[in-house]
Design a protein around this nucleic acid. Sequence first.
DNA 1: GCGACTGTATGGTTTTCATCGAACACTCGG
DNA 2: CCGAGTGTTCGATGAAAACCATACAGTCGC
Lengths: 113, 113
Amino acid sequence: MTQRGTSRGSSHRVAPEHTHPDDVPVLTALAALADPVRIALVRELAGSPVWTRSCGSFDVPVGKAALSHHFSVLRAAGLVEQRDEGPKRVNRLRREEFDTRFPGLLALVLRED
Amino acid sequence: MTQRGTSRGSSHRVAPEHTHPDDVPVLTALAALADPVRIALVRELAGSPVWTRSCGSFDVPVGKAALSHHFSVLRAAGLVEQRDEGPKRVNRLRREEFDTRFPGLLALVLRED
DNA sequence: GCGACTGTATGGTTTTCATCGAACACTCGG
DNA sequence: CCGAGTGTTCGATGAAAACCATACAGTCGC
């Protein structure tokens, strides 16, 4: 049963589902990056120290629901890793891993021409 | 000037509109490649000598109209160049130019993992 | 010129995707 | 325990994109 509440039994938040870049098809990676909001997220994330940015701290013109969905897509594409830290969910760009799987792709997105 | 034909009047087919890779935003390039049919076209085209493949010679599960549209997208993304040769329109993958603008991107799509 | 062949344009249908509002779940500080 | 803060889920909506069938426009061989 569910022990919840009263005195014990930890009931953590469900850990986000991650996909390793190695398990990501090219099409999925491209589709994930073919969106202006997600590109903004990746760029902003790339410009910040790891594990310092919570989901809500990004400057994108969409509501919470859409934002949550975008992060879900980025996770599924192996681009972002998330960890729960207190009430917030902090992010990390999977630079190395993703670049090993798709060499140069991240660099293309990050350079602002 | 352009007189074509032997001596008169010429009413050629409208030459397809091309966009040079240098004028293509990253988002457009990614969006163009984020489609299974277009990836198939690019791959098949990459495996053939230049100017040998007409639009209708590709093995993709879509009708003529959709096919024409896909080629239009590929042209706009600077991925494909087309030339009229008799009744058919033959294609060339813009390897060098595209790779100069988006280094490594084409390689990612062409390698079948 | 006629007819087969190739590709484009148009109109309409279906699907996909981004988005929002509202409800819910969890964490933490009073 | 309550309430503020953070993020996910659900249902619905709207826009974009893929697709097809048809009609049209060139090119070429006869």
